[in-house]
Structures are given as C-alpha cells and as structure tokens.
Amino acid sequence: MDVFMKGLSKAKEGVVAAAEKTKQGVAEAAGKTKEGVLYVGSKTKEGVVHGVATVAEKTKEQVTNVGGAVVTGVTAVAQKTVEGAGSIAAATGFVKKDQLGKNEEGAPQEGILEDMPVDPDNEAYEMPSEEGYQDYEPEA
C-alpha cells in the first residue's frame, strides 16, 4: 500500500510541476504579447503594419512553449490582441483601416495563427491545408 501511495504522490508532483510550467509559459506569452502591443503603439504610420505582424510573430513563438489545451486559448487571445492593436492603430490615425491585415508588401496577414497546427491532446499534428499553395516548377 505504501508503494501505491508513494507512486500516487510522485504522479501528483509531476502534474503540479507540469501545471506550473504551463502557467509560466502562458505568463511569458502574455508578456511578449504586451511587449508587441507597446511596440505597435510606438510606431509611426509606416511601421504600424509591420508592428502588428511582430506582435503576432512574438506571440506565436511563445505559444510553442505552452502545451496542451492552453495553446488553443493563448492563440485565440493573441489573435484578438493583434486585431485590437490594429483597431487602436486605425482609431489613433497611425494607419488607414484599409491597410490593416496586410503586410508591407500588401499581402493579407489573416491566418497567421489560424494555420498553425495545434492539437490540445498532444496526440497528432496535421499540416495546414494546401489550398493556398501553388506547385513550383523550376525553369529549365
């Protein structure tokens, strides 16, 4: 019985440690998101679009440190934060509304985080759909 109880105690310690790591990862992701939003706020009209992409990228980098179902929630929060940063930029006159959601080359930025393969159960990952990809044929 002692062996059984000791095993359960060790398992509990492992769960607590994993929860603490997840909590730490979420806190880091939130900190990076805040950094990115402050970065966007300090940019001029020309830099705002690039700044919004930076927020998304920093958040995406930190999301990889967070495991399990938390990833889905962090990704949703990050996307809403990026959308909010863009709205703030438009409201303050840093950028025109028609410039939001495009990178410096004018290509749409939507789907940055949505296409990231995420499995809350950590069982399997699927690649994003290939609808947006084109076949590449090298020139002879």
Rank of each mutant, 00 (worst) to 15 (best):
K58P: 01
A53D: 02
S9C: 09
G111Q: 11
D135W: 06
T33Y: 02
V26M: 15
A89G: 07
T33V: 14
M116E: 14
Q109K: 12
Q99Y: 09
D121Y: 14
T33R: 01
G86R: 05
M1Q: 00
V95P: 06
A29M: 12
A90N: 13
N65C: 08
G14E: 09
E123V: 15
E83Q: 08
E114I: 12
E114H: 07
D2M: 04
E139M: 06
P138R: 06
T59M: 04
P138T: 06
S129Y: 04
V63L: 10
A18N: 00
A17T: 10
A90H: 11
A56F: 07
V15T: 01
K102E: 15
L8R: 00
V15M: 12
A11M: 14
Y136F: 09
A90S: 06
A53E: 07
A124M: 11
P117G: 10
T64C: 12
N103D: 12
Q24N: 07
E83L: 04
K6V: 02
V66C: 09
K60Y: 05
L38G: 02
D121V: 05
T59N: 01
V16Y: 11
G93N: 05
E131M: 03
I112H: 10
G68C: 04
T75E: 03
E110V: 06
K23D: 00
G86A: 07
V95I: 13
D135L: 09
A89L: 12
E110A: 08
V70G: 01
A53V: 09
M116I: 06
E104I: 05
K34P: 00
L8W: 14
A29E: 00
G41K: 02
K45Q: 05
E123N: 10
E35D: 09
K12N: 01
N122W: 07
F94A: 06
E83N: 12
K96L: 11
A56P: 01
G41T: 13
S87W: 15
G41V: 10
A11R: 00
K45I: 13
K43A: 10
K23E: 00
K12W: 13
K45G: 03
A53P: 01
V71G: 02
K58F: 12
E83K: 05
T92V: 11
Q79D: 03
D119P: 13
A69P: 03
V3P: 00
T92D: 03
F94E: 03
G25D: 02
A78T: 10
G68L: 13
K32S: 02
G68F: 02
E35Q: 04
G51I: 14
